[in-house]
Design a protein around this nucleic acid. Structure first.
Lengths: 189, 189
DNA sequence: GTCTATAGGTGGATAGAC
DNA sequence: GTCTATCCACCTATAGAC
């Protein structure tokens, strides 16, 4: 179920990449068509309008996160390593001057449809829930130390990573990102 | 010097407000003209093109921050109170679903001109420098406690506020912002 | 300084042939 | 499923009258 054709996947791949770089208002059907090697009319066949495309983008991004976090849980038994892999997920796009799709959609939230906004909060909630669970695990394991409740710490951690992406991007300097995340990790020690 | 006419100020006021809500790619000359009550051609008289407008926006925003931070320094002798007033500056726009202009321009950085990007990093650098100085002061006063160097902590603090704005905006819930900032403050105690 | 008028381009979107 | 052709709204920007 939810099978998408190869072309639809290519369109989503390209759109995701452009949104991560320029935001949802920073791209057009023409941009996608050029990169994919099709005509704009073909995009409309797969995604009738821009809202459909936005919703599909966040939907798929959420699915990818759920899969990735499950993989992390399976591969890494201890909480600190899970956190480090999570940070790596947020670091990679910055190397290409991109950010998490959630950051971009959050910025452009006011121009998104109701449904797209709901998808967005769904994605962020999934991320926060996973982080909270990792932090709780770390605390009970004794591998992570922090004050206050895990939910608040999850918020701070995610907010810091989002801001770190924006700062590193503005300065075109990945070290700003690393500087922030290394201190975040060591604060839990 | 750098005196701007009343109309130019009104244009900047409106543009700033729209950018904070919808991003730099989310507004047009027509939007501004409508709100200010002039024609789009008049905007071009004051700001020949969109790049000029972007540069003027960040320039003025930086000036306003410098003035505001100087006022905070003058009014509040101790570091924790300075931090709290800084947080308030980032909280206010969220109430109207806006963010710091720096966040929006950072998101749209890839579509900005070279000069606008330089202005942007100038603004962020000014913010980071001021924060670093406040944190250093607090540490030497004994009113703020933290690990590592003040520069890194300034980065984390700013990144957290930026992310907190995005999170609160996405959920349309100011309490997410407050939850984050209260924990940030208490972590320094 | 602000206006009308308009140029020239690009945006998303549709109809209909293949 | 993908194409060509096309529509129309909107965009930034300019020329020139007032």
């Amino acid at each position: 179920m939810n099978k998408k054709s190869q072309t639809a996947q290519a369109i989503l791949d390209t759109a995701e990449s452009i949104v991560q770089e320029s935001g949802f208002n920073g791209f057009s059907y023409a941009h996608i068509a050029d990169k994919v090697g099709i005509r704009t009319a073909s995009i409309h066949y797969h995604f009738p309008n821009k809202e459909d495309l936005a919703v599909a983008l966040i939907e798929r991004y959420t699915d990818k996160f759920v899969a990735a976090s499950a993989r992390i849980d399976a591969e890494s038994p201890n909480a600190p390593e899970r956190l480090r892999k999570f940070i790596a997920m947020y670091r990679d796009p910055v190397l290409e001057y991109r950010t998490c799709l959630g950051v971009m959609f959050s910025s452009d939230a006011s121009t998104l449809s109701e449904k797209a906004q709901e998808q967005l909060t769904g994605f962020i909630s999934a991320t926060l829930s996973w982080l909270e669970q990792v932090l709780s695990l770390g605390r009970s394991e004794g591998t992570l130390r922090f004050e206050g409740d895990a939910e608040t710490q999850a918020h701070i951690f995610l907010a810091s990573l989002q801001g770190a992406q924006l700062l590193a991007r503005s300065f075109r300097d990945i070290r700003r990102f690393d500087q922030i995340t290394e201190e975040l990790i060591s604060a839990f020690a």
